[in-house]
Design a protein around this nucleic acid. Structure first.
Lengths: 342, 342
DNA sequence: AGCTACAATGTAATAGCTTACATTTCGCCA
DNA sequence: TGGCGAAATGTAAGCTATTACATTGTAGCT
């Protein structure tokens, strides 16, 4: 089935068959409004007949754009990114752009490499998650005038575009709410905060809430691990065994929280009577698990869609940075209640 | 930050700076062995100094390949595909290929269009899900000599490559097991079977099991809907209200099954005492929901990884079709038991 | 020294499309 | 009907890297 590449029809073949110039064919394909109805139908017929498809490389080189947009996400396996990317891609398809994706597995070096690969592959613009990144990488993108949009976070750098939400504020709000119920012995299970600005901001937001309540930040014990149900389970198990007085476990995301709930339940803790657990993201698991998880709802799909629009705008014409902060909302569900002794 | 595109260094700039011809520079980059040590280091220094990156379009046009592999999946929001694609992409990155992805939302027309778009974008090969597809589309790919691999299913056409599993057999096995427990009043909630071969094969596999057990296929009532927790819930609610004698609901995938479990529970049915429910895929939700779901485990990550390897092989040299059938396994968990009267 | 053979390098054709600019066509009005 | 402006179309110059083929350089041999 895979013979030698037969040579494909070119613009010129189409032009000849339709009896017009190559310029006209090109216009038919790219700016149909500039061509008369009669000509257009002749050309389209020729295109159909020859099953012509423009050669990508030639188009890229002549137009100096590829219509390819890159997205680099930490992982496809967390549904928050899957959702955002799905919406992102749908917006791109609608305007005939194409998405290339890669996941970095939360590894900054890997991400830096992927960024260069994507630029080398002709990406017209990039979607990046979070703000933590080597300055060299930003310099590289700026030198090459590759526009990028940061998602899932808000950049403090006023020259950068983002479509995100305030991890810090959302976390503060959630934790303040939890503290108000009376919790004074708190554990926080986070992703590694050194290279993950979203995780870090959430932790700092929680500390902020504690301080704002006039409490000692040391009532919160921080554990760091990678995001996964298993890690949530093992870390929570460890916490409940070493500091059984803990009444609230704050999880950096819902995936960890689901693991924590399972761990707590298999240790015989009743949630929320004996122990409260909260998460972040509001993924599907949050409502399927019992009790349902109190968490922060993040508009992942909207973020993907809006980021796509922003990025497309940036690739079209020079533009001041686009900075959009989306709202989050605390979802109060069954996993949070007052501590047992309250 | 996004000024007008400054023009990037070209091969010629590098050649000039290094005091050699463009051919030599090109050779340095692509076939270093053909260039003397002295020249090579001069050239590499120039490349570094100018931060030269080859222009993608020019390279694609001159070399007639892009190193881009396309993947078209029904949706990113079902974690089975997210997982498969994640593994697929990792394998590609490892050999310096790049993945472009799009989702078709289970729409055949949309998929056909996306296939053409991807080929137009220079994809060297394609990953496709399932076998149901307009013959024109296959003809198009064959004409253009674009290799493709089918995943999540096994193609009966011996000229096609696939890395999949036997939906029919897996379903037969699961349902046979369920029937053996005594169920005689069965509902099946499936995706639309007209355009979805995986869904269809699962339904047919279930019927096969019923016939094999010497029972009348009419004991199974089929509903068709789109895959989603909500649809699982509403369809199951409907079934339980109109045919309350149903003792087993077979769901076309786990997402529907989770909805069905929720529906059943909110109607006061005890699972598995009053009602059994089974799914297909073995996603994370299956073990988080209570009771845990009896379902068919599918090796999604392996499938993605192996499909990538197969596709890369096919793009490299003409090759007979690669046909790999992966094993599935029935996961027996709490949601399946004998019917109440048994 | 003179020759061969091969390694290293250079020259220039080529790939297919877009687009600025030039030219032609057309409709419409005086 | 002549003339004008706008619409439609054509011409041809790029865009950048690869590569077949031509040329030059060099080592090794007699």
């Amino acid at each position: 089935m895979n013979g030698p590449k037969r040579s494909l029809p070119t613009l010129e073949d189409v032009a000849q068959r339709a009896g017009v110039s190559t310029a006209t064919v090109s216009r038919c394909l790219n700016e149909p409004a500039k061509v008369s109805e009669a000509t257009r139908s002749k050309v389209m017929a020729a295109v159909e007949a020859l099953k012509y498809t423009p050669n990508f490389g030639a188009r890229a080189i002549a137009a100096n754009r590829t219509g390819i947009i890159g997205a680099i996400i930490p992982t496809m396996e967390n549904s928050i990114f899957a959702r955002g990317i799905e919406a992102f891609q749908k917006s791109l398809v609608a305007v005939n752009a194409t998405m290339i994706v890669a996941s970095s597995a939360y590894d900054p070096d890997q991400e830096a490499k992927l960024i260069r690969t994507m630029v080398g592959r002709g990406a017209d613009g990039l979607l990046l998650i979070g703000t933590d990144r080597d300055p060299d990488t930003y310099a590289y993108l700026n030198e090459r005038n590759i526009p990028y949009v940061i998602a899932w976070a808000c950049s403090p750098d006023p020259t950068q575009s983002y479509v995100g939400f305030d991890n810090h504020a959302a976390s503060t709000k959630l934790v303040a709410h939890a503290i108000a119920q009376g919790h004074r012995s708190i554990a926080y299970i986070s992703a590694k905060i050194a290279t993950n600005d979203r995780a870090r901001e959430r932790v700092l937001g929680a500390l902020r809430a504690i301080k704002d309540a006039g409490l000692n930040p040391e009532i919160m014990h921080l554990s760091q691990t990678d995001y996964s149900v298993d890690n949530g389970r093992s870390t929570a198990t460890n916490i409940l065994q070493t500091t059984p007085e803990t009444t609230l476990i704050i999880c950096g995301n819902d995936v960890l929280a689901v693991g924590a709930i399972q761990a707590a339940q298999s240790l015989g803790r009743k949630i929320p009577d004996d122990l409260s657990i909260v998460g972040f993201d509001d993924i599907e698991l949050a409502t399927v698990i019992h009790p349902a998880l109190t968490t922060v709802h993040v508009p992942h799909s909207d973020m993907g869609r809006i980021a796509a629009e922003a990025l497309l705008t940036l690739t079209k014409t020079p533009q001041p940075p686009i900075r959009i902060r989306l709202k989050t909302r605390t979802m109060e569900r069954g996993s949070l209640g007052p501590p047992p002794t309250a």
